[in-house]
Design a protein around this nucleic acid. Structure first.
Lengths: 145, 145
DNA sequence: AATAAAATTGCGACAACATTGCAATTATTA
DNA sequence: TAATAATTGCAATGTTGTCGCAATTTTATT
């Protein structure tokens, strides 16, 4: 078991970069959080590693596809990508901030369809949806009327 | 004519905030660029307005839905939203950086469908697709084989 | 297991980006 | 056009991200 950590190490080796304690530490921070974090926050939660190294590592992770970036408000958040976390998207309530993970094959299919229509081979995609959740919609409607 | 600027002024008034030269200047910067800009870049391109005011204004614009934010790489970019710019998405080639605007109703429909399935009333969405364009795919394939 | 070579890290200094309080200015209202 | 309210600029400060280089750690080799 502990397959994730192993896959992670393997992935680094396959790409000809070293498997270091710093990289493991940052990977674990991401793993433990299991939700998107600001880059600064990742640095803060990994005090054993220097800020500069954190950023360099994060850049590496992104390049190797270990992490992905999502937008929340105006700030970019980083989270582990596909092999280490199930593929999903978020939908955020603009009023209460509730975040729900969504998984939907139709959505994926349509994205690929659209891409191919423009003669692109889709590699990555970011989908961020936001609106009003049922609860807030009820409240808002009440006071709006 | 000059409807856009009028709509803009109207929108501010409707929301009970002042129509100021600073706000007009920033609006024009966005308008002239007609592509997403980093917030810092917006400040740089609007030297008549103090940086602090630019950020405060940008925050206001976002709140009023005048602007939207898209992610490119790790940095958030701001661009004018719906009423002032036609609704569209981008697909970016990871190799040559080519950016193509896409417009597709099916995509929109699916997004709404998905949202409603989670009991959300969709208000905004960000969709960023990236992959390989036809040209680059041809080249890449050649050398990969 | 020991060592040489290569890769990565931490450090310190720095640059860019963003935020805050407050006095001066500008827009709005009557 | 004067009074009031909103917004701006300024200046100081915090935060985030970057860079070069010497010290350390990892990896490859024996």
């Amino acid at each position: 078991m502990n397959t994730d950590a192993d896959n992670f190490a393997q992935l680094l080796k396959n790409n000809g970069v070293s498997v270091t304690t710093a990289r493991r530490a940052i990977f674990h921070t991401l793993r433990d959080a299991d939700e998107p974090l600001k880059n600064g926050e990742i640095a803060r939660r990994t005090p054993t590693v220097d800020r500069a190294s954190v950023y360099r590592t994060l850049e590496l992770f992104a390049r190797l596809g270990i992490t992905e970036t999502v937008m929340r408000g105006w700030t970019p958040y980083t989270e582990l990508a596909e092999p280490f976390t199930p593929h999903h998207h978020h939908i955020i309530c603009e009023n209460c901030g509730k975040v729900v993970e969504i998984e939907n094959d139709t959505l994926e299919d349509v994205l690929n369809l659209v891409a191919s229509r423009y003669d692109f081979a889709l590699q990555k995609h970011v989908v961020e949806l936001s609106g009003l959740c049922a609860d807030c919609r009820a409240k808002t409607t009440r006071q709006a009327a």
